[in-house]
C-alpha cells in the first residue's frame, strides 16, 4: 500500500534527473547558439569599417571608368580566390571619384562596363546603368551600390568588404555585435 502524500525515492530522483538535464541543456544552449550565430556576434570591430587601399589615384585617368581589384579585409587562409573582390572606379576629375560595387543592385551578378555606350550592363536579368551608376533600365529598383572613398597622399581608399545587397545597399551597416532588436 502506497501513501499518495509521500514522495517516493524513485519519483524524486526522476524529477531531480529531469531538472539536472534541463540545467545542462540551458547551459549548453548559450555556447551552441553563440557558435551558430557567430557571424553576427563578433565582439571586435568589424573589419569592413576600416579604409582599404586601391593603390595610387593616378592609375585611374580622369573621365574613365576602370576595374580595380582588392583583397577583402577579413580573410581566412582557405578562402582562395574568393578573398579578392572587384569594383568599378570612375574618375570624374582630379578630386572626384565614384567607386561602384560590381554587384548588380538587382540580385548581385557582376555588371560589366561598356565605355562606348557609357553603360553598365548585367548579364543575368538585363539590368543597365548609366556611367554615374543611376538606373537606366531593367529589373533593378535603384542605381549601382557605391562605396565611400577618400584620397590620402595620392592614394585612393574605399570602405568595402561586405557584400552589398538591396537590404544593405551601402554595405556599411555594422552587422557585427548589434542585433536589430538590441
Amino acid at each position: 500500500m502506497t501513501l499518495p502524500e509521500t514522495l517516493s525515492r524513485r519519483a524524486m530522483l526522476m524529477k531531480l534527473g529531469i531538472f539536472f538535464n534541463g540545467i545542462i541543456a540551458a547551459l549548453l544552449a548559450v555556447p551552441i547558439l553563440g557558435y551558430v550565430l557567430s557571424p553576427l556576434v563578433r565582439s571586435r570591430k568589424a573589419p569592413y569599417e576600416g579604409w582599404l587601399g586601391l593603390g595610387a589615384a593616378d592609375q585611374f585617368p580622369a573621365g574613365q571608368t576602370r576595374l580595380a581589384t582588392f583583397r577583402n579585409p577579413d580573410v581566412a587562409p582557405w578562402d582562395g580566390k574568393t578573398a579578392d573582390s572587384a569594383c568599378w572606379v570612375r574618375r570624374i576629375d582630379a578630386q572626384t571619384f565614384q567607386v561602384f560595387a560590381i554587384n548588380c543592385a538587382h540580385l548581385g551578378c557582376p555588371v560589366r562596363w561598356f565605355p562606348q555606350s557609357g553603360l553598365f550592363m548585367c548579364p543575368c536579368h538585363g539590368g543597365a546603368y548609366y556611367e554615374d551608376g543611376t538606373r537606366a533600365s531593367g529589373p533593378p529598383e535603384r542605381g549601382l551600390f557605391e562605396y565611400p572613398y577618400k584620397i590620402e597622399e595620392g592614394k585612393l581608399f574605399i570602405k568595402a568588404g561586405q557584400l552589398p545587397t538591396p537590404g544593405n545597399p551601402s554595405a556599411l551597416l555594422n552587422v557585427s555585435g548589434k542585433l536589430p532588436c538590441a
Binding site: 557571424p39 553576427l40 573589419p47 569592413y48 554587384n103 540580385l107 537590404g167 544593405n168 552587422v175 536589430p180
Partner: peptide
C-alpha cells in the same frame, strides 16, 4: 540578395547565410 530583402532582419540573415560579410 533575395534574403537581404526581408524587412528589418535582412542584412543579418545574409551574414548568417554566408557565415560572414562576403561569400568565401
Amino acid at each position: 540578395s533575395i534574403s537581404s530583402r526581408v524587412p528589418i532582419v535582412g542584412p543579418w540573415t545574409v551574414h548568417l547565410l554566408l557565415g560572414g560579410p562576403i561569400i568565401a
